[in-house]
């Protein structure tokens, strides 16, 4: 190289008193010349502050994919952190749910005679999956850190509701896809929605009295018993369990459960043994 950036030129560059071409020359030269780069004086205090910020950002970590999605959905960062730690939002759980549903859909296509049974079974089991997700949203045994969580000021109804919502969303979404992908009459794809919603809200309402996992087990179990008893005959399942009258009943029950949940939300502390 034929020339180097001396201190005077550097100062002029910094002040902005160089002609455009000389600015470009300094830029190009500094880019290519390690010695001139090293000669640039450092504002130590400022650089130290920036370094701390760099180290902190790296140390605190980047958001995972689930977090990123939630952020994109417009949730504030701290809320996302809470939701992302929800045990049932881990990819392993979501992947397992997706696999079960994929198998169900695949089974429905394998044989015509088997298809009908499979679809009935799908209808029967579909409302239970979101309840399982709710059960693992908060508190023991799903959340290994529940003891620490329950002793913090954020513990309590709003955290439970947020997490339950966060896990029901993906569970319902995946089921919706599975339902639409399955062969069968169009209404099958949505018939299970109301019962599923009822079981979820009902579980939360019941969780104002019982621990969350037990509430979920109780309601989910009851549903399965009733549904499987009826499940021996497909017409019974279609006509009664998912018929118009039953659906209207589910709707009323959902409203009732929401009222209970609203009134008793203070008691929604399913992580605590109280």
């Amino acid at each position: 190289m034929t020339w180097h950036v001396d201190a005077e030129l550097l100062q002029e560059y910094e002040r902005g008193s160089l002609t455009p071409s000389r600015v470009m020359a300094v830029d190009a030269h500094v880019q290519a010349c390690a010695a001139c780069r090293a000669a640039v004086p450092a504002d130590t205090a400022r650089l130290d502050r920036t370094w701390l910020a760099v180290a902190d950002t790296i140390v605190t970590g980047r958001p995972g994919r689930a977090e990123w999605l939630l952020r994109r959905a417009g949730l504030p960062e701290h809320r996302v952190r809470l939701l992302a730690a929800t045990p049932a939002l881990r990819w392993s759980y979501l992947a397992a749910t997706a696999a079960v549903l994929a198998l169900a859909v695949a089974a429905a296509y394998t044989g015509q005679s088997a298809a009908r049974t499979t679809l009935v079974l799908f209808l029967v089991f579909a409302p239970v999956l979101p309840v399982l997700a709710v059960a693992t949203a908060y508190g023991p045994p799903a959340d290994s850190m529940h003891e620490i969580t329950s002793a913090t000021p954020m513990a309590g109804p709003s955290l439970v509701l947020w997490r339950a919502t966060a896990v029901v969303g993906p569970a319902m979404g995946m089921e919706m896809i599975a339902a639409v992908a399955s062969p069968g009459p169009g209404w099958w794809a949505v018939a299970w929605l109301l019962p599923a919603f009822l079981l979820c809200v009902g579980t939360l309402a019941l969780a104002t009295v019982l621990p969350l996992a037990r509430a979920a087990g109780l309601l989910g179990g009851t549903w399965l018993l009733v549904a499987l008893a009826a499940g021996s005959s497909a017409p019974l399942v279609q006509g009664v369990l998912f018929g118009p009258a039953a659906q209207a009943g589910y709707l009323v029950a959902v409203i009732a459960a929401i009222v209970v949940l609203t009134l008793r939300r203070r008691h929604l502390n399913p992580g605590e043994n109280r």
């Binding site: 140390v59 605190t60 970590g61 701290h78 952190r81 809470l82 730690a85 620490i148 969580t149 913090t152 000021p153 954020m154 513990a155």
Partner: peptide
């Protein structure tokens, strides 16, 4: 650090 960050959020 992420774990502490999570608990810190729980602690408001």
């Amino acid at each position: 650090a992420a774990l502490l960050g999570y608990v810190a959020v729980l602690k408001e």
